[in-house]
Simulated assay, not measured.
Amino acid sequence: MRLVMDACGRHAGLPMETVERFVDEAGQVFRFNQGLLLSTIDNISQGIAVVDADQRVIAWNQRYIDMFAYPPAMVEVGKPVADLIRFNMQRGLIDSQDIETEVAKRLDFLRQGSQYRVQRQQQDGRVLEIQGNPLPGGGFVTTYTDISSFIAVQQQLEQSNQLLEQRVAERTSELQQLNNQLQLTQQQLEATTVAKTRFFAAAGHDLMQPFNAAALFASLLRQKATEPELQQLSENLSQSLEFCRRAANRYFRFNQT
């Protein structure tokens, strides 16, 4: 419209038909752009709401209406955003002990034009990521993204990690107990081996004494005997005792190792 008025001012002699054509063409361009914008934002999976510098709603998409289940005609151009905030608080979508204080705080935040991003869990269990960005010249655009599935996957991964850590800790504990048992068994085996070695050493000493004594007596008998038969008998007896003594030594040495 400003372009049309400027053209009329610079060209005062333009026929009215030309001016009407300019106005009609400008209106068509405006409606086309507006329709393209609305079609674009209506096909976005995010909910979108735009307010002007006076905190009044000037644009939104159907996804925004569906996300918050607004009644028909609740959201309209020029609607104070404070009414929508208050309505959501009264329904319990936003926790607050003092509704009016919370509404005033949020309006001040919009006026300051500070960018923000938060996550909020709804009463029905959905988790929304809300991101706000200021507009040039005033106003604010807010997007609402349903990230419930992402949060659910994240929680499942955390639970899986916790379960995995628990299983690793349990297996580590079991391995440590098994290692302790093996060490105890090894200690018992070493103690048994030492005891066995001591036993066979003592038994060998005690059993070899009679052999040694018998061998000594056989040697004396061979020295004292004068008859050939007795000398041969004592010689055989000495050899047998020596054989038994050597066999006993080998047996005890084998069992001590």
Rank of each mutant, 00 (worst) to 15 (best):
F87P: 00
D24K: 12
Q181W: 12
G138N: 00
A214D: 10
E165S: 13
L38C: 07
D6R: 15
P136N: 06
G9L: 15
F200C: 14
Q123Y: 08
S45E: 06
V168C: 11
V23C: 10
L14Y: 05
L164S: 09
I94Q: 06
M208A: 15
A202L: 12
S39T: 06
F217K: 03
Q131M: 04
A73K: 14
N255Y: 07
Q239I: 15
L230C: 08
G137K: 04
G138D: 01
R246D: 09
D83Q: 08
Y251L: 03
Q154Y: 05
A218W: 00
Q154S: 11
D66Y: 07
Q123N: 06
V153T: 13
N61L: 01
R31P: 04
W60K: 01
A218N: 00
V75P: 00
T145C: 11
T192Q: 13
Q188S: 06
L184S: 08
R10S: 03
L84C: 01
D52T: 11
M16I: 04
A104S: 10
Q28M: 11
Q256I: 04
A73R: 14
P136H: 04
G47P: 02
N212V: 15
L128T: 00
L84F: 03
S240R: 10
P71Y: 00
Y70A: 01
L14K: 08
G125S: 13
T226W: 00
D42E: 05
I44R: 02
G92W: 01
R126A: 11
T257I: 10
M67V: 14
F254H: 05
T101N: 12
P210F: 07
I147L: 12
Q231F: 00
V77Y: 02
T185E: 06
Q177H: 10
Y116N: 02
S39W: 00
R253Q: 07
I58H: 01
P134L: 03
E165A: 14
V168G: 07
F68P: 03
Q176I: 10
E174A: 14
Q97G: 13
Q166C: 06
V194M: 11
A152V: 15
S96F: 10
G204I: 05
P136D: 06
L36E: 13
G92C: 03
D66N: 09
I99V: 15
L135H: 01
L216A: 13
D108M: 11
A104D: 14
Q131C: 05
L164M: 09
L178W: 02
E76P: 05
N180W: 12
N255F: 11
S114P: 04
L220F: 07
A191D: 07
I151S: 06
E170W: 10
L230I: 09
R245T: 13
R222P: 04
Y116H: 05
D52G: 02
Q231T: 02
Q183E: 09
F109L: 05
D146L: 13
L36W: 14
S96G: 09
Q239F: 15
I99C: 15
D54W: 06
L184D: 06
A215S: 14
R167T: 09
R167C: 07
D66R: 09
T143Q: 02
D95E: 11
A214C: 11
I147C: 11
L164A: 07
G204H: 07
N236V: 14
A73C: 14
Q176C: 07
Q55W: 02
L14R: 06
L233Q: 05
V50G: 02
M67H: 08
V57D: 00
V77R: 08
A69V: 07
Q183C: 07
